[in-house]
Design a protein around this nucleic acid. Structure first.
Lengths: 258, 258
DNA sequence: CGACTTTTTGATCCGATTCAATACGCGTGG
DNA sequence: CCACGCGTATTGAATCGGATCAAAAAGTCG
């Protein structure tokens, strides 16, 4: 377990400083781990070559081997229907973990493709799992990340279920903004690494609608767009669009709150 | 940790046979656990009084203490917006685990209310977590359940994002059908414990639309409805409604699959 | 039985899709 | 360097699905 994958795994001495020096180390898995524990986590991580744009990290249906922590760049996950159309299921940014949805079936329910040049850490799941048994804080962190993904999905559900096109795009922009700013990037200007088509698929809208929305948001001085580069001119106004969302479009349910 | 909650926990001798005799025991958490391990899991579980219809298991915002395994009945989870309207986030059936989304924030992001008389097991999370560290198969099972929830949400996302009203209702019916049949109930006829309003909220539709759909499905001989009781007359036809879903409404994305 | 809630049915309206066409961006090769 | 072609993005006009408004019908429960 040392010699046979020397070509893929960096040697231990090199690894030693990797996670600790990684700008993500407090955002990524190791949160709460220290010294020795961190070393042990690092020891199981493979650092592969960066993916170039449009390269695939894993395919839908692939056996589940590892989860992927993004260090730089971004990835989209999508599943392909019988007819060949892609349904985007998520965008993943630096510091985020891709592939956790594969645990239940032991195979990936979606494919993951790089939206730009993307470097990542590959974490063999079986080892992560056994290490988690030994390190309660790691186990907790893992459960927490998964739980967060559930919450995130639930929010998105709400979003797609009953929000207008405006609210959907606003939500996406805010989500990207807050996730990027958590990682130390600007909260108000960034590049959209995904295409309009990807955004449309993700938000459950037609491409034309997305395009019109960008235009209109700009007219309303909410944002400034130049191709893939966007600036959020008024975070507050954008937030208020989303906040006002659930305000009566769908009548209240069973108001008999016991 | 024995005396102080004697009132809530049944005594050990009574517990002893509970999970093992429970019809859910292979569907619920203990999957893969045996003998001694199962005893240890059972020992941490509280069996509370059944909830009556409209009673609450936990409120949105409550500190996260436990997850809830449904033994009989059903529960809906929902979050309430500022304006007081309920957004249904899920329906939970026997054998399913409610509350896992609370891990990340350490508080419940939604409330859980009984849709009918519902009995359940309350599993203190901190103990479940520490027990998981000791029992790798339990840890795996837990991760698996969470992963499944992520996958489920992702599917639903797809559903709400871009499916027609027909497809949404068909999906819900099929989901209920397969989940119920997994638990040994009929796959083709069952009672909807939730109101049309709940269904509408969950599916992101107006109540009127849901009502019309039931009517139309019946006209098309897909189902037979009598109030809350439904019979699925042709599972195949209903399935085909959903299968044909992604067939071109939204154009394919970035077809350059590297 | 009568008040109230839930469900159904009907008519109208609006947002988002669809269809269609044009403009932009970008890499390739002449 | 510019012309060409192809994918991506934008813009316009017409259509349609589902929401909304309104009201009747069917359950539910004290």
């Amino acid at each position: 377990m040392n010699k046979d994958n020397n070509d893929k795994i960096v040697t231990l001495s090199k690894i030693k400083v990797a996670c600790q020096n990684c700008s993500l180390h407090q955002l990524c898995l190791p949160l709460g781990l220290e010294g020795d524990d961190l070393d042990r986590l690092e020891a199981i991580i493979k650092r592969s070559h960066p993916l170039k744009k449009n390269e695939i990290a894993f395919h839908q249906g692939d056996k589940f081997q590892a989860v992927y922590a993004i260090r730089a760049g971004s990835i989209k996950t999508y599943s392909v229907a019988d007819d060949g159309s892609e349904q985007i299921t998520g965008f993943y940014l630096p510091g985020e973990l891709v592939g956790l949805d594969a645990i239940s079936e032991d195979s990936h329910p979606c494919s993951a493709k790089a939206l730009e040049t993307t470097s990542y850490c590959e974490i063999p799941f079986s080892r992560l799992e056994s290490l988690s048994s030994e390190l309660p804080s790691l186990q907790h962190q893992l459960l927490k990340i998964m739980s967060k993904e559930i919450t995130h999905d639930a929010n998105l559900l709400m979003l797609l279920g009953k929000k207008t096109a405006d609210e959907r795009l606003a939500s996406l922009l805010l989500s990207l903004s807050s996730r990027l700013s958590n990682r130390g990037f600007s909260a108000t200007e960034f590049n959209l690494s995904m295409s309009r088509n990807d955004i449309a698929s993700y938000l459950g809208l037609a491409v034309e609608t997305v395009s019109r929305l960008f235009t209109r948001f700009q007219e309303q001085d909410l944002i400034k767009v130049d191709g893939k580069f966007v600036q959020l001119l008024s975070l507050d106004n954008i937030k208020s669009m989303v906040a006002d969302c659930s305000n009566n479009k769908h009548s209240s349910n069973t108001p008999n709150t016991a």
